[in-house]
């Protein structure tokens, strides 16, 4: 199969959706001539013109509001938050309006919009351009939250998100844009709400999201040499969460570690941990469920501090080893 980058996979997904369905349009800051802050929409303006590739003023509330309004009238907008941090300015439109409208109109309104957000640290972009805010939206009924960790998943999930008749928050990771992987040329979808066992193992279930998936796989390779076999699960969709494969895996391994980049306190790891303990996997737990996550600090500008503020491969190796060896 052909290898392309995560960014190219997203672009291809957008292009194919727009070719197939002329209700689909893109709206965001610098997505036209400039091609998007990370180049995802490069070249699309030439193909689809300014009617469908809409450059906006610097107004995230405007982008989100346009998505809500257009979607409720039958369009399928894809809005872009240049940096996921800026979504704070769009919260009213997304949370107050977009998430609730379908329910408040007794199911008579459909809101098929997607907000793409470039999240995560590791680029030296400091506190206001490096956050991982996905769990804010997990907490809001009416929104679906998707977080692909590979080029293949990026395209397949994006196509599903665009076909979805409810608002989808689509979290991309800045460091993953250059990641290469096999991606089919044709259109395909990966269902929202389906997790993926990306590596099988018997000793510990690692539930990782976004960039933490490749890091966990790297850690698994290292630990495998010590005879420790990690089972790595990528939920891919945080909401609705595909619980069963996680529960089954924990029943098998008896141990679980959740790894995410967002800060630990109030993060998605707490949700996964609680879900495990409420499930039938509880009786099979042979160690406390642990969370490895970002430190409770704004991402520092200093590159060394930034590195240590979020889980790295070596941290995952160490934490997983401790759990397997019953140190906790």
């Amino acid at each position: 199969m052909r290898e392309i980058s995560y960014m190219e996979a997203l672009r291809e997904g957008l292009r194919q959706s727009m070719e197939k369905d002329d209700r689909v349009f893109l709206i965001g800051e610098d997505i036209g001539i400039y091609g998007g802050a990370f180049g995802v929409s490069a070249g699309l303006l030439d193909q689809f013109g300014p009617e469908r590739i809409i450059d906006t003023p610097i107004s995230e509330a405007g982008i989100a509001g346009a998505c809500v309004g257009a979607s409720v009238t039958g369009m399928r907008p894809v809005g872009e938050m240049q940096f996921s941090d800026f979504v704070v300015l769009a919260m009213e439109q997304i949370v107050m309006q977009g998430a609730k409208m379908r329910f408040m109109f007794g199911g008579k309104a459909e809101l098929p919009f997607v907000i793409r957000l470039a999240g995560g640290s590791g680029t030296g972009a400091a506190a206001q351009h490096s956050e991982s805010l996905e769990n804010w939206f997990v907490h809001v009924p009416g929104l679906k939250v998707v977080m692909p960790s590979s080029p293949y998943d990026a395209k397949g999930l994006l196509l599903s998100a665009i076909e979805e008749n409810n608002p989808v928050m689509f979290f991309e990771h800045k460091l993953l844009y250059k990641m290469k992987g096999d991606v089919p040329e044709e259109m395909y979808t990966i269902p929202i709400g389906k997790s993926k066992i990306v590596r099988e193992g018997k000793d510990l279930t690692v539930i990782a999201t976004s960039i933490m998936v490749p890091r966990s796989l790297e850690a698994a390779k290292i630990l495998s040499k010590e005879g420790i076999e990690l089972e790595v699960i990528d939920p891919r969709t945080l909401k609705p969460l595909d619980e069963e494969p996680i529960i089954k895996s924990v029943i098998k391994t008896g141990k679980a570690l959740v790894v995410h980049e967002a800060v630990k306190t109030g993060g998605f790891g707490g949700e996964i941990s609680a879900m495990i303990m409420e499930s039938e996997a509880f009786d099979f737990l042979d160690a406390p469920v642990r969370r490895l996550a970002g430190l409770d600090v704004p991402i520092p500008y200093n590159r060394n501090l930034e590195y240590h503020a979020v889980p790295q491969v070596e941290n995952i190796v160490e934490e997983a080893r401790k759990i397997v060896q019953n140190i906790y």
């Binding site: 008896g254 509880f282 009786d283 099979f284 737990l285 042979d286 160690a287």
Partner: peptide, 14 residues
Amino acid sequence: FEPGKERATPAARK
């Protein structure tokens, strides 16, 4: 060894 207060994992208890 305090009866009823043993430290044990859920799997062990099961």
